[in-house]
Design a protein around this nucleic acid. Sequence first.
DNA 1: AATACATATGAACACATAAACATATGAAGA
DNA 2: TCTTCATATGTTTATGTGTTCATATGTATT
Lengths: 110, 110
Amino acid sequence: MEHEINDDKLDKILENLPDEELIYNLAELFKVFSDSTRVRILCVLMQSDLTVGEITKSLSMTQSAISHQLRMLKQARLVKFRRDGKNLIYSLADEHVSTIFSQTLEHIME
Amino acid sequence: MEHEINDDKLDKILENLPDEELIYNLAELFKVFSDSTRVRILCVLMQSDLTVGEITKSLSMTQSAISHQLRMLKQARLVKFRRDGKNLIYSLADEHVSTIFSQTLEHIME
DNA sequence: AATACATATGAACACATAAACATATGAAGA
DNA sequence: TCTTCATATGTTTATGTGTTCATATGTATT
């Protein structure tokens, strides 16, 4: 069984490689998913829109920690919010999160 | 528009929340995807099985850096390898990576 | 206007992590 | 066995990250 790849083939692989910027953005988005606090926030938001206080309560953490993480999720355009009096109600920005999570869970279950 | 969630509803959300361990594993897997070097390695492996030397060459990095990252990818069961003489030929462990990546790219493109 | 409540922000600290360097392992050929 | 080539591993260092604490912003109520 001989494995052989010449430079032409390597060149071809490099041509088909996505742009550096795209790869960077991909990694950046995964970085957002790479913290269990943020994953938990996304998981509760999958079930219902919630205020910051409710998220804080449900995850038993400080309000500050939650707020910092919501900031990252906002920047990644994964969540959005609307105001309701003194409260800010957060919700998922789209359904991509669910799709990505379920695909990834499939890999874990084996 | 009144937003109101009582404690019963919060309890229900907590019940439906995945196990702490599952969430942790999910975040851990995403952490593997959260570095652009590892994403690039996975991208070249999507195109062809490659030796460590070829990966090193194609990404213009030190062999040590590549080897360290391959170790993480191995631990996450994202890649596997077979021996061919002095070479180790790495390949993707399954097709989940492609699926996850394309879903995530969809979110980025908007 | 003063107060209370909900949320955001800034700084600091403890901890994690990627890359580089040096070195070790392990296979093949002389 | 000695050497060479391919890859892995241990250590160090510089940089990044999550949480906490203290404080600021902003909205509603009186």
